[in-house]
Design a protein around this nucleic acid. Structure first.
Lengths: 111, 111
DNA sequence: ACCAATGCTACACTTAACGAAGCACGGACA
DNA sequence: TGTCCGTGCTTCGTTAAGTGTAGCATTGGT
C-alpha cells in the first residue's frame, strides 16, 4: 500500500484525466451514462429516468457526451452508449459497488 | 413500442448510487479525491493541487467528503483518504485508465 | 385534418462556483 | 514580549451553471 502510494507520488494528472474529472463534475453527466446502461433511451425517457432533469441541461450534456464519444444518437431510437461509453459504464459499475458501503446523509448539523 | 421495451429493461438505481452520482456531479469533488491519492495534503496544498480552486468550494467539498467518510482530517497534517476513500480511489484509477482513450476537445462547432 | 408523441428551444429564476480580500490562530524567532 | 510567516479558513460581490415551465416544429398514426 505504502509502496503503491510511493509509486504514484511522482505521477501527475494527465490531460485526459483532467477532462474526465472535469466532465464528471457536471451535474447529471454520469447519471445519464448510468441510465443508458439498460439500452437506448430517447430524450423524454432519459429526462424522466434522471428524475425530470431540465431539458436544457440534458441537451447540453448529450452534446458533450457525444463530443467525447461516449454516446451515439440513433435516429428514431434515441441515444445509446458507444463502445467507449460501455467501458465507462464498467467504471460506473465499480462506483455502484463502492457506493454500497456508503453511509447516507444523516444531515445533522449539515447546512 | 420501443418505450415498452425500455420500461421492461430498466433496472432501478439504488439510493446510494444516486448519492454517489449526485456527489460526483459537483465540481472538484472527484478531483480532490484524486489529488489526495499521493498522500495527505493540507488545505493550501490541496487548493493549489486542484489548480487554485476557490477556498469556499474546497471547504464545502471537504465537509461533504468527510460526511461521506471518504476523507479524514488529521490535525497538523491536513486531509487524507480514509479506507473507503482508498477504495474510491481504485474506482478513479479505472476512470484514469478509461480516459486514456478519450479524444480531447476539438472544440469545433462546440458552443 | 386532427391528435399525440417527441426533440428540442426560450426565458425568467434560483443556486452554485469564483476569486480576491482578509481574519484568527499557532509556532518560530527576537 | 512583539512581530513575522504559514495555515485554515470566512466573507462577499460577481459570474456561470442549473432549474422549471411553456411552448414550438416535426413526425407518424387515425
Amino acid at each position: 500500500m505504502a509502496q503503491r502510494i510511493q509509486n504514484l507520488r511522482r505521477a501527475s494528472t494527465s490531460e485526459q484525466m483532467c477532462e474526465a474529472l472535469d466532465f464528471s463534475g457536471r451535474r447529471w453527466a454520469l447519471r445519464i451514462v448510468w441510465e443508458l446502461r439498460v439500452g437506448p433511451l430517447n430524450f423524454r425517457a432519459l429526462q424522466s429516468a434522471c428524475g425530470n432533469i431540465s431539458p436544457s441541461v440534458l441537451q447540453r450534456r448529450l452534446h458533450e457526451l457525444g463530443r467525447l464519444g461516449v454516446i451515439e444518437k440513433i435516429p428514431g431510437l434515441g441515444y445509446r452508449l458507444s463502445a467507449s461509453g460501455e467501458k465507462l459504464f464498467l467504471v460506473l459499475a465499480q462506483l455502484d459497488k463502492w457506493s454500497d458501503g456508503l453511509r447516507l446523509a444523516p444531515s445533522t448539523s449539515d447546512k
